[in-house]
Design a protein around this nucleic acid. Structure first.
Length: 493
RNA sequence: GGCGGCAUGGCCAAGUGGUAAGGCAGAGGAUUGCAAAUCCUUUACCCCCAGUUCGAAUCUGGGUGCCGCCUCCA
């Protein structure tokens, strides 16, 4: 069995076959660094992180490259607003990007590329396109002539003659006059006074938006890569233009597989900066009642990556509770492994998911998980497998807590737990210590026993206000009391 | 106007021909002084109409509604 990937180019799922066996070259269109990332970005990068982790787990040697667009009109505008420079703004938000992604447990790319570091490659590419007749200079700018490229529109499935130029209402009046065709796009833009600019055969200026990705892919990964990913909103024109640029220059396919993630919606419409309906990642995670970052991953993974995903408070709460269940399962071994006589009561350390687990894993869960993920990364189904394991561990934990017994043998439990831990890692879900009690609030066992005795006395005196007060008090210190028949109270942290 | 996508229980969401995974929420019961946790039970005319088929949420045709893109976008 192989991994099936929905390829935007063919509009169907295809069996994944890398160009070189077992090696995957993957390029992800990154952010334009002019503001903090919002949940739309979070979804996108969580999705691609998961794809990458899964392919790695599946045995592929994945080389993952992501870019930063650090030359752009929006960055310039922001720099003007903040009385800063394009470089300073770009650096600020690039730093913020790394902070946000780390919190979401998104692995770093093998390599990050920057438009500003790729100027030579960009100029070389534009020159080639000019030589081959795909590009023409006009008043200091250079444009790509879309009608020269036969395959134009093949990714987004549209024909030039069917589109309405300017439908989005964002066309530039001056460019419209200069260009030979309304769909021609800028490869190089002449600089206005006091804008950052680079010298070039066409004069001082800066690259257009699309050319950087073509140049960066070529520089870092070569002429043809296996998987090119990005948001669905990049399909047209960005990716279409990348294809036109790269393939016109090299005569080779830019990527075998194109993958696009669905948008995050708010009240049924796309989260976007221009609509002002966005929530930044840090805004959400730093709020007073902030959800756990892993809950954000859960939120993302409980929907198939190509479907739209509605961001609501309710959805985040549901994801938070779901995560709590999974996390309890992930902590099972840490809490009970020693008691059950396990050799290893801590998760196998699986750097980059590549180590072989120390014990055989649960075959059924494993194959269900793999079948789900092989089917175009069906994370909702994969997550259901994790819930199956976590719920069983939860049941056993409850049995142990209440009766000191369990009804499954220790080896089977260890296997289930290790399976859960490993599969969670493949999805980037990282166990977190359950205790949320600050160390200053820690309480020793003898004190707990004393308080329980006091509570039992209060209960016998039918002073329930006092007994509830003691229970609440202990609860605040992370102690859970369980009243059992016969007036016996047991407890656990 | 063009292209593409989606419509499954209270909410979210799998499922592409054999009669509906999972999460969240709710209800009833066991247990409890009340809880918590757990256990048991329980909540689906799969947008509408027509067709194909022994059989359709799943295929075909036609509707309806919603969303995305048509040079800012993850």
């Amino acid at each position: 069995m192989s991994v099936a990937i929905y390829n935007t180019l063919s509009r169907q799922k295809e069996a994944f076959q890398p160009l070189v066996p077992n090696q995957v070259k993957m390029y992800c269109c990154g952010v334009t660094v002019y503001d903090y990332c919002h949940l739309g970005h979070a979804r996108s990068y969580i999705v691609w992180d998961t794809v990458r982790r899964y392919l790695t787990w599946r045995g592929y040697d994945v080389r993952y490259v992501q870019n930063f667009t650090d030359i752009d009109d929006k960055i310039l505008n922001r720099a003007r607003q903040e009385n800063s420079s394009m470089k300073a703004v770009a650096e600020k938000y690039t730093g913020a990007y790394f902070e946000d992604m780390a919190r979401l447990n998104i692995l770093e790319a093998n390599e990050y590329t920057y438009a500003t570091h790729t100027i030579d490659g960009i100029k070389r590419l534009i020159h080639e396109l000019e030589q081959k007749g795909y590009a023409y200079p006009a008043e200091g700018d250079v444009y790509y002539s879309v009608r020269k490229f036969d395959g134009y529109g093949k990714l987004s499935g549209r024909k030039l003659d069917d589109m309405r130029a300017g439908e989005s209402g964002r066309t530039d009046a001056i460019q419209t006059q200069i260009k030979r065709d309304p769909f021609d796009f800028a490869l190089w833009k002449s600089a206005k006074p006091d804008e950052p600019a680079w010298d070039s055969p066409w004069g001082m200026g800066r690259p257009g938006w699309h050319i950087e990705c073509s140049a960066m892919v070529r520089d870092r990964l070569g002429e043809t890569i296996d998987i090119h990913v990005g948001g669905a909103d990049l399909q047209f024109p960005h990716h279409e233009n990348e294809i036109a640029q790269s393939e016109a220059a090299t005569g080779q396919p830019l990527a075998t597989y194109w993958m696009h993630n669905g948008m995050v919606n708010v009240d049924g419409t796309k989260m976007s900066k221009s609509l002002g309906n966005f929530t930044t990642i840090r805004g959400l995670l730093d709020a007073p009642d902030a959800p756990n970052p892993m809950a954000i991953r859960m939120f993302v993974m409980q929907a198939q990556y190509r479907m739209p995903l509605d961001f609501t408070e309710e959805a985040i709460i549901a994801a938070t509770k779901g995560w709590a269940t999974l996390n309890e399962g992930l902590n099972f071994g840490v809490q009970y492994g020693d008691q059950l006589g396990w050799q290893r009561s801590h998760p196998d350390n699986l750097p980059n998911n590549q180590s072989t687990p120390s014990i055989p894993l649960d075959k059924t869960a494993l194959s269900q998980f793999q079948a789900s993920m092989d089917d175009d990364f069906n994370t909702p189904r994969a997550v259901a497998v994790l819930f199956g394991l976590a719920k069983e561990l939860q049941r056993q934990r409850n049995l142990i807590v209440h009766t000191g017994q369990r009804d499954t043998n220790s080896a089977a439990l260890e296997r289930q737990w290790q399976t859960l831990v490993q599969l969670a890692q493949v999805l980037g879900l990282e166990a977190q210590a359950i205790s949320s009690v600050a160390s200053a609030d820690q309480i020793g066992d003898p004190d707990v026993e004393t308080l329980i005795a006091q509570r039992t006395a209060a209960k016998q005196a039918k002073n329930y206000a006092e007994s509830d007060r003691i229970r609440a008090n202990l609860s605040a210190k992370g102690i859970t009391l369980i009243d059992k028949p016969g007036g016996v109270t047991i407890w656990h942290r």
